[in-house]
Amino acid sequence: MDILFSPQLLAAALITGVLYALISLGLNLIYGTMRLLNVAHGDLVMIGSYIAFMAFSLFNVGPLISMFGAAIICGGLGWLAYRSVFQNLLSNSEILARLEENSLLLFFGISVVVQNLVILFFTADRQGYEYLSAIVEIGDVRLTGARLAVLIVGSVVSIAAVLYLRFSLFGLAINALIQNRDASAIVGINVDRVQMFSLVIGFGITGLAGALISVLEPITPVMGFPYTMSAFVVIILGGLGNLWGGFLAGLLLGFLEIYGVAVTGPEWRSVLVYGIFIGILIFRPQGLLGRGRVAR
């Protein structure tokens, strides 16, 4: 039982929690502003990981630099997706009526295509690389340099993003859109632009998270899906569209998962995540913090 009180476990929970917070932030933006259920979200993590892996193995560039590249490339994919598909989709009333279901099926299709394309190019094998693997000691905590870097970068980026979205003018516009799309257009918010940037930022942040994750775990074409699930757990837990709630919920899920696995065993990891997920959907669809606005 001592292990439960070890700072090691605390650090692990923090790392997982921060990454969940970061990834779910992207999903929250996309769902909140456009009601798009992006079940391919985890595949952006996977793409970000592969970008970092490629950058390292081809050009010897570390993830702390290539993460910006991953963010830019994934953001660009967001731009592309918006301009090519979703801009039209969001103005088609017939599709808009069943947007959530349709976008879910759409992203599901995209996810399958992307994963299999990656398998074709990189094979289904696990990939990985060594980076900052030396142990750093801070007090009682022993971490690899990579994990410490992930913890710091992840915290800084996610907190900065939440603060930015809370206090900047653009963040206000996004919030307005999350609250009420039609009214936002009436008060003069350029809905089209806000939607596009939400998708770009949402994709970009997630790609960046993917680059960070590439130093923590083996990279495979199907690594993204658990992150999709976790991100959905987090945004439902924190309240859909509630960015700050999502941040806290991300940390909470990280703790639940790491400590849960420490108590039960690694084979229970998936059961825990899915169990929490199903429990929340059934018993508290309005989230833990939320007052039940969106989920009906």
């Binding site: 259920l37 079940v39 959530e100 279901e101 879910l104 699930m229 959905f232 439902i236 998936s270 059961v271 899915y274 169990g275 997920f277 199903i278 959907l281 059934i282 669809p285 989920a295 009906r296």
Partner: peptide, 16 residues
């Protein structure tokens, strides 16, 4: 659980 949440739930249930 309705709409899109059911869709995700159904998937989660199968995995569980």
């Amino acid at each position: 659980v309705r709409g899109p949440y059911f869709v995700i739930l159904s998937f989660g249930l199968a995995e569980l």
